[in-house]
C-alpha cells in the first residue's frame, strides 16, 4: 500500500513529500495554519504560513514569529506538492488547506461552518479524494436555526433586559464569536462594551475589516454609564470579581453547546443562545457530499459516531484519527481569554 499523502504523527498532520505540517500541535519547522484559535495555531514553529487575514491574528497571539501570508487560492509549491488555502467560514481568516500531489487531492478543513456569518469569507466546497474534517457537532441532535432568527432573539433579550433596568452580559470566545455577535447586535438598543480580551482581538480584526463600534471597559469606566447596555465578555469572566461590579445584570452564552439544557444549567447562565461557528449535523453531511470524496478522516468532535455513520449508512471509506484539536470545547475558555481576563 502506498503511503498516504497526509499522515498523522505525534506532531500533527504531516505531508511527507513536502516535509510540512498542517496545524501541528508540537513545534515543527514549517507549519501551515488554518486559523487563529489556540488549538490550531500553536506556539513554537520555525515558520508559519497562513491566510493574510490570519497573520495579524496569530502574530498578536503568539508574539514574534516568522509568518508568511497567502491569498485564497494562491498556489504554494513545496517539493512538487501544491498547497492552497480556501475559505472555511469558521472565523475571519480561517481556511481549509488543499494539498495536491501527483493527481491526488486532499483537503483538511480545520474548523468550518457553512452559513455565511457576515464577517468571515464564506465556506467554499472543494472537490477532493480525501477529506479530513472536524465534527465537533457531529451528532443529529445539533441543527442550527438560521442566524437571523438567533440574532433576533439576542436583540430582543437585550431590549427586554434594558427595559427592566438590567445590563446584558453576553459570553463569547474572544476571537470569532465575539465579533460575529458585535456585527449583528442592534446598537439602536444601546452601546456595546467590551472586556479587554475581546477588545484586543477586535482591534486586531479591525486592521483588515469594518466592525461596529465598541467601548473598551477599563478601571475608569463609570459603572452607571454601562447600565442597560451590553457587555461582551469571554466565558472565563463568568463569576469573576471583575464582572460583579456591573450588577444588576443578566447573563447569556452564545455557543452550539447551548442546544443542551444540561450545558446551559452547568454554565449557570440565565439564557443560552444556540449559535456556533462550527457546522451542524446536516452541515457536516452537506460538506462531505460536496467534496465528492471517497475517503473521510474525522479528527475532532464526535469522531467515532460521525465516521461510523459515513461508513455504514453512506458507504464512505471513513475513519478516525487522533489529534490534539479541541474544536469548541464546552468547558475550556481558551487560554488567551484567561491570560487577559
Amino acid at each position: 500500500m502506498k503511503r498516504p499523502l497526509l499522515a498523522f504523527d505525534e506532531k500533527g498532520i504531516f505531508c511527507e513529500p513536502a516535509g510540512v505540517y498542517l496545524d501541528p500541535w508540537r513545534p515543527v519547522d514549517k507549519a501551515l495554519i488554518t486559523h487563529g484559535h489556540s488549538d490550531h495555531a500553536r506556539w513554537g514553529h520555525r515558520q508559519y504560513i497562513t491566510h493574510h487575514h490570519n497573520k495579524p491574528i496569530i502574530t498578536s497571539r503568539l508574539g514574534t514569529i516568522s509568518a508568511k501570508g497567502i491569498s485564497w487560492g494562491e498556489p504554494l509549491l513545496v517539493n512538487n506538492v501544491k498547497f492552497s488555502f480556501h475559505p472555511a467560514g469558521h472565523i475571519p481568516g480561517s481556511s481549509q488547506i488543499r494539498v495536491e500531489h501527483k493527481g491526488e487531492v486532499w483537503v483538511f478543513t480545520g474548523d468550518y461552518k457553512l452559513e455565511d456569518d457576515g464577517i468571515s469569507q464564506p465556506f467554499e466546497p472543494i472537490r477532493c479524494h480525501g477529506f479530513i474534517t472536524e465534527c465537533t457537532f457531529g451528532i443529529p441532535a445539533f441543527n442550527w436555526r438560521p442566524q437571523e432568527e438567533v440574532f433576533h432573539d439576542i436583540n430582543t433579550w437585550w431590549r427586554e433586559n434594558k427595559e427592566e433596568g438590567n445590563t446584558s452580559v453576553l459570553f463569547a470566545y474572544s476571537l470569532g464569536k465575539a465579533q460575529r455577535l458585535l456585527k449583528h447586535l442592534d446598537q439602536s438598543i444601546g452601546k456595546v462594551y467590551t472586556h479587554g480580551a475581546i477588545e484586543n482581538m477586535t482591534s486586531v480584526l479591525r486592521t483588515f475589516m469594518e466592525l461596529p463600534p465598541t467601548i473598551p471597559i477599563n478601571k475608569d469606566t463609570p459603572k452607571a454609564e454601562i447600565r442597560g447596555n451590553l457587555i461582551l465578555a469571554p466565558p472565563s469572566a463568568h463569576g469573576s470579581v471583575w464582572l460583579r461590579k456591573f450588577a444588576p445584570f443578566v447573563t447569556a452564552s452564545a455557543s452550539g453547546w447551548m442546544a443542551f439544557r444540561g450545558a446551559r444549567r452547568r454554565r449557570a447562565v440565565d439564557r443560552g443562545f444556540v449559535l456556533s461557528d462550527h457546522a451542524d449535523w446536516s452541515g457536516l453531511l452537506k460538506a462531505v457530499k460536496a467534496t465528492e470524496c471517497e475517503t473521510v478522516v474525522t479528527t475532532h468532535g464526535y469522531t467515532e459516531i460521525f465516521s461510523r455513520y459515513l461508513r455504514e449508512e453512506l458507504g464512505y471509506n471513513a475513519y478516525t484519527q487522533h489529534t490534539e484539536f479541541e474544536g469548541d470545547q464546552e468547558e475550556n475558555a481558551s487560554a488567551e481569554d484567561k491570560e487577559t481576563a
Binding site: P140, F260, G262, R308
Partner: peptide
C-alpha cells in the same frame, strides 16, 4: 436516522425527551 445513531445521541444528550426534541 438509524437507531444506533439515536442511541449514541441519547447517551450524549443524557435525556430521552430532549434527544427526541432535538433530532
Amino acid at each position: 436516522i438509524p437507531l444506533w445513531l439515536f442511541e449514541e445521541s441519547y447517551h450524549i444528550v443524557g435525556d430521552l425527551a430532549e434527544t427526541i426534541a432535538l433530532v
